[in-house]
Each structure stands twice: as C-alpha cells, then as structure tokens.
Write a protein that binds this DNA or RNA. Structure first.
Lengths: 331, 331
DNA sequence: AGTCGCTGGGTAATCCTTTACTCGACAGCT
DNA sequence: AGCTGTCGAGTAAAGGATTACCCAGCGACT
C-alpha cells in the first residue's frame, strides 16, 4: 500500500510537502500541489488513518451510542447526527447499546481507545461509564435522557409535558380509566412519561392507581403482555398511553386479539409518529418527537464542545407534538 | 492520559512485558500479569487505539455500509453482523450510503484509511468503489445484492424466486391485472423482483405490460406517487407486488386515499415482514426475508476471509418466505 | 561440573504521518 | 548594495503500542 514517502518520491518533494499539499493547512506552491495530487492519484494513495490519528491525537470521528438501532426514533436521530457531522468532515460510527449498561460501557471504552473526537449517547442510566469520558476530557452530549450526576450538554424532549398533554387529550375525549404502558424503571424517558401521565390525572382530579400502569422493556413483546394483563383484569382501562412505537405494535396486537377496535372502546395514544401510524384502522394518535432535530442539535453541540471544551454545558429541550387521529376519538 | 510506559513504571517492568501481559499473546509470569493488571487499572489505562492499529497494520473493526439505516431490513442485518462480530472481539461501525454511489465510495475510502479488517456492504451497483477494496486486499462481503464484475463472497436472498411465488400467489387468488412497484433501475434487488414478477406472469400466460410497472426509489413517497399513477390510469391494476416495506406504506396510503380496501378490490403483497404488517386492515401479505440471518452469515464469511484471504469466494443464497394474509385474498 | 535448551523479560526497531524548527531564496526597502 | 522580512520547503522529532531480537538465568542431562 502506497505510503506518503512514495508519493513524495514520485512528485519529487519531501513528505512534509506532500502532507501540507494534501491537507491544505499551509501555503504550498500551486504547481507542487498539482504535482503532488497527481502523484497521489496515480499511486492510489490513501493516508494511513491510524498513523494520522496517532500523530494528531484525535480522530475526525464521532461515536453515536444509541439504545436500539431497530427503533426508528433512534435511527432518525442518527440521520440528524450524520448530516451535521458530515458537513464538517467528521465520520459517524453508530453503536448499539441495546439498553444494556455493559454494552454501553464497552462501546465507550472503544471510543476512548480510538480517540474519537466526541461521543453522543442515549445513556442507559448507569452513570459510571460516562464518567470515564468526563475523566478523559472527551467531549460528549447526552440525547433523549439526561445524565444524573453530570452536567454535560443534553438534548431532551419535554416528554413529561407531552405525556401530560396526551393524557389530558384522552381525558378531554371522555375516557375515564386511562392506563399507561411505559418503559423500564430507571430509564428516564419512561419515568417521565409516567410522571406526565400522572400529572394529567391529578390535574383532572382522577385517581391514579398502579393497577392501570405497567412497565416493561421498550419492545413490542413486553407491551403485548402488559396490555393483555390490563385488558383481562377486573376493571380494564378504557384508554391507554403507550410510551413508544414498538410498544404500540404490541398493544395493537393485544387489542386485536381481544377484538377491540381502538378509539371507540379503548382510546389510544402512543409516542413516536411511525410511518405506519396512519395506516392502521383507525389511524393511531401519536406524540411526534423531533428525532432528526435532536440528532442535528446534539451534533452541533458536540462540535462546539470539541472546538471549545470550556463552554458552559447547555440543556436543550425540544417540544413534542400531539397528533390526534382516530384512535383517541370515541365518537 | 496514561501511556503504556506509565503502567510499566508503576508495575516495575518494561513496556514489552505490559503489552504481553495485557494482550496475553506470550507467556508471562503470573505474578507479573497480576501486577501489571493492577497498575493498569489503578491508572485507568486504555491502550491508544491508533498506535496499536498503526503497529498492527489492522484494526479489529469491520465496517458495515448499508443503503438505508431507516429500513428495518437493513437494521436487522446490522444486528446479525454485530452479534457475530462481537463474539470474536470485533467492533462494527455502521455507515449509511443512502443508495448513493458517492457516499458509498466515501465510506469505502474511510474504511481503507482506517485500515479496518473488513467491509460488509450492500453495493449501490456502481462497482468501481468496491474495486478499491479488492485492490488493497481488504476483505469484503456483499449482502443483498451481488457485485457485477467481482467474484467475492456474497450473501443473497433468492428474491427473484420469491417475487415469482408472490406473484403466482396473487394469480392463484384470481387477480388478473397485477402491477409491480419496485426500486430504481440498476438496483439488483429491484430488477430481480421485477424479473420474478414477470416470470410468474409468463408462467401463467398473462400478458406483461409496462403500463402496470413503476420504478421509483425504495421509499414511501416514490411508491405513493407510483400507486397514484397506476390507480388513476384507464385500466388500473387489480393487484400489486410492492418491493419493500417503506414502499408498502406509500401504497397503502394511496389506496386509502382512493377509498380502496386491500384484498377485495386490489390484492397486495409486499416485501419485508414489518412489525406492523399484521396491524393494518386487512393484514398485509408479505415476503419475509431472513435479514438477521443474512447479517450473521455475512459476518461469518467476512471473518473467515479475514483469516484466510485465499479462500475461494462463495455465494450464499437464502430463501424468503411468503406469508399470506388478508391483503392478498379477495374473498 | 560443564553445557545445552528453554523460558521469561528487556531493548530497541518499527508502523506512518504531522508539524516544529530551520534554512535558503527572493523581494522590498533604505 | 546590504539588510530584513516573508514565504516555501526540507529535516527530523514525536506520537504510543507491538514485536523481533537478544540475553540472563535456571534446570537437566551427560
């Protein structure tokens, strides 16, 4: 594989000149630049990344550690991050923590080892692995969930408020026994959505009971079980707030199995505006989160922090939008 | 940031011993290993990846270049690759080519520069960028689509046969004017699905006409337009074969807008068994592709090729499964 | 006892690029 | 003409881990 010295020899200059000509950092004679570029092209020269990163002490790479690659919410974030990062020449590597603190920690180790310029992550809640980043001075930004004991840049959705509004909407539609199926204890978004749900009940002077609340992993299977339980109990709910779109799939399945059509019998609002939400019958009411925007904002914050590590940490909270469709209208 | 020499000093040994103790390549005294490990831990030592990769001339990383992170088919592949790669200590970096030859080429350049151990990609069709990998001797495996002029390892789905079977199923159900909405010209899977569709028409002695075929990008928007066109023309189709699940969303929307219920009036089979396929009314008939398996197999092939670059290239073809649901039953 | 072989660990070369430092040449000014 | 400042390009150091090579020490065998 061609090295920089090969290019230098072919172009009849020193390696330093090749480096400068190719990276355009310093002024180099026009003719030489052309000669170097031609030589590089002819040899198919590709700089050795590890050597460059070793010398530069940093790679033009940001790591994005998300908790579920199969969740459209997170892939949309990924797209936002990617678009912004690419504009300024950074590559993005996407890692999947699977909501698993150990995997997260492992990926953070890899990120540190590879000397990435920065990390964007949706933290699993265990704070310890992120402390490693702080200790190294590696720039990082949390998305979707805050970090308990770190003040870092964070990009959030006001998910508690959104949950409250969605629940209030169900109440306004006349539903009276509203249940909530949300994610695991300790996952901040799951806690917040539950809190927002309770806020709305309280505001409406409805009694809140744990009998109508279920918490499971953020997947269809767990939500399916949860919905089954809720629907078969003595006093089943007449509406449900569901905490993400994968869960909505499980809940809709359960309703189908019980022959229940959403809306009329059981009102339904789910988080995340999945592409298929309008296709089910009746169309699914959703809380649309600005996922792409989250990613884009997080990437911009990260780049700013990479450029200036002394910036004061900021928290950006984006709003979510309730989209009312048929599944939350009894009429 | 702690270096290997710091660990060596703290443990009272040479850097060579630290390296050997930590990597376990060579026999090192038990006590020394323990001392080194303790020293490393106390210092929070993380080896410098670029330095290691520079010396080793290869990084324990495989790049996975897929054409759409938002397509569940590809994210499932990613999961398969990840699971297998992690077992043997490789990291996976996920890159999104967006079905764009230039982006693909750029990611391949990055992969080469970073000296990744191997690349798995769903090629966009332009072969040239892959030639760079071959020229460097970097191991690679193509998934989902073959490479025109390269004989490399490939993992495919027999998508032409699956398309034929799906179309034959529609014919068997009594549909007579069957249309096809597939991906762009030159994308192999799109071409193959069209070919399979035509195979079935020919086998049933039905006339095949371009009036019933539309090709657009593999997205909902394109498919929506295509379906609109097909449905509003003089002799509209009475059934449709749709080439992926994102497109199915667009087609279902169009049908909805025309007040057409799938099945009775217009039969429908789409590729990819999306989680929501059973939730729409009537449930969507699909061709389920073994995406996770594709990823897992590709990763195993890649690892084998990394270990032995002289292996003869293999082509693995996996089968797809037609799942008949309500959308393809007129009764 | 002497020698051979083996084991374990140290020394130093190596991977390749970037960049600090240095030097030469040329232009402009007095 | 001589001096200074500037610009461009070369030389060589630095970055940190791995590993080829070498050496010391010890056990075993003759």
């Amino acid at each position: 594989m061609a090295r920089i010295s090969d290019v230098a020899a072919r172009a009849g200059v020193s390696t330093a000149t090749v480096s400068r000509a190719l990276n355009g950092k310093s002024t180099v004679d026009r003719d030489l630049v052309a000669r170097v570029q031609r030589a590089a092209e002819e040899l198919g020269y590709q700089p050795n990344g590890p050597a460059r990163n070793l010398r530069r002490q940093e790679a033009a790479v940001v790591a994005l550690i998300i908790s579920d690659v199969e969740n459209p919410f997170f892939t949309a974030i990924a797209r936002g991050v990617e678009d912004v990062a690419h504009e300024v020449g950074y590559s993005v590597v996407l890692c999947n923590s699977d909501e698993n603190a150990e995997k997260e920690s492992r990926y953070i180790d890899v990120a540190i080892q590879e000397r990435v310029a920065g990390v964007i992550l949706s933290p699993t809640g265990t704070t310890s692995s992120v402390e490693k980043l702080a200790a190294r001075g590696t720039a990082f930004v949390a998305v979707d969930r805050p970090l308990p004991h770190q003040d870092s840049d964070v990009v959030l959705v006001d998910t508690r408020l959104a949950a409250k509004q969605a629940t209030a909407h169900l109440i306004a539609q006349g539903y009276e026994r509203i249940g909530c199926i949300t994610g695991p204890v300790g996952v901040r978004t799951a806690d917040d959505r539950l809190a927002g749900y309770r806020d709305a009940l309280r505001a409406a002077k409805l009694r809140s009971t744990t009998k109508l609340v279920r918490r499971t992993e953020y997947k269809a299977a767990g939500a399916h079980r949860a919905a089954q339980e809720l629907l078969t109990q003595a006093e089943p709910p007449d509406a449900l707030l569901v905490a993400n779109s994968a869960m909505a799939v499980g809940v809709l399945q359960a309703l189908q199995e019980h022959g229940i059509r959403p809306g009329k019998e059981v009102g339904l609002v789910a988080f995340d505006d999945a592409p298929w939400a309008e296709l089910v019958d009746p169309p699914l009411s959703v809380v649309a989160q600005p996922a792409y925007e989250i990613g884009a904002v997080a990437a911009r914050l990260l780049l700013a922090r990479i450029a200036d590590s002394t910036r004061p940490p900021t928290t950006t909270t984006l709003g979510a939008r309730l989209i009312e469709r048929g599944s939350s209208h009894p009429g």
